[in-house]
Computed example of a mutant assay.
Amino acid sequence: MIEIGQLPHARAAQAFIDYLKGLDIECVPIVNEHGVALVVYQQDKAEQARYEFEQFKQNPYQKKYLEASWDNGSTQTKLDYGSSSLGLIQQFITGAGPLTLVTFFVCVAVFAAMNLGFANQVFSQLSFFGAVPNSDFSQVWRVFTPSLMHFSAMHLLFNLLWWWYLGGKIETKLGTRPLMILLLVAGSLPSLVQYMMTGPNFGGLSGVVYAVVGYTWIMGQRAPESGIGIPNSYMTFMLIWLVLGFTDLLGMPIANGAHIGGLLVGLAQGAFDSRKRSR
């Protein structure tokens, strides 16, 4: 019996077990306090299994693993996944790092406050320079804090889903530092662009979202060994959404300056970080 590694999720473990099955490697899950240990009994296949395990950890969402679950998965339940609600909560928490989660919940808290009778107070404290009286450039936080305000539930949901999905990938794969830079730079500089285009009345995490999209895409193209990336179709969708923002088809005001600025920030940082990794 040879343990090749541990995974925190029963679902992830089952996906990997199904993939190994397609390679004629029998892998057995053993649930413990740390998650799921993966064990093989074929000594001659242990090294191959370890190699495949490392590949799986770097990019567990590859299409080949999903296909393996369809092709090789058993209809018999192999693992106890626990209650669906607990499984979703665990996936939400472990799929992101502390910065991703803190930013997520701060945006939710700000939106809740704005819809519980404190909209004027929140806006007066977090809006961009010039949006309210006596908001001058000495209040330096105002260059960033508009990113934390959202004016509709749809706007909040759209931004936070992308932030959790891609920001979480960046933080869990590469660490908090690159995500912190993206958050601060793309949450600030694009606000200046938006201000020059439309004035001070704007808000939302959209600029940062476009930054993490651009960063993840270019890292996947230029440094696939980093373990992050998105399909070209996702990038195409976001570019189409960006273009539609300049039309009246969406029926709502769009922070186009923040979108463009954030995308450029993400692409620039991704190009820089991928170059560092290739040295």
Rank of each mutant, 00 (worst) to 15 (best):
M197K: 06
Y81I: 11
T94C: 04
F272V: 14
L205H: 02
G117V: 03
G22S: 11
G97V: 10
S127A: 15
V132S: 14
Q55G: 05
V40C: 14
Q42R: 12
G130Y: 08
A153H: 08
M1P: 14
Y65P: 06
A46N: 02
I4W: 07
M235T: 03
L264C: 12
V36D: 03
N115K: 06
A46H: 00
N72F: 14
G245N: 03
G214V: 02
A271V: 15
L263A: 09
G5I: 06
D71N: 13
N134M: 12
L244Q: 03
E171Y: 01
N256V: 11
I2C: 12
N159F: 05
A271G: 06
M154P: 00
V212T: 09
Q269M: 15
A268S: 15
I228M: 04
V265M: 06
Q6H: 13
K45Y: 01
E26P: 00
E225P: 00
A211C: 05
A258T: 02
N256Q: 08
T103Q: 03
N32L: 07
L182F: 07
Q121G: 13
N72A: 07
L160T: 01
I228S: 01
S188A: 12
Q90N: 15
Y65V: 07
P200Y: 10
E54V: 14
V209Y: 00
S69F: 04
K78Q: 12
P133A: 14
K173C: 01
Y19P: 01
E52N: 13
T100D: 11
R11V: 13
I4M: 09
N120E: 13
S124M: 07
L160H: 04
N134I: 00
L267W: 11
K64S: 10
N120Y: 10
F151L: 09
M149Y: 00
T100W: 08
S74C: 04
L23G: 03
I260Y: 10
L166R: 02
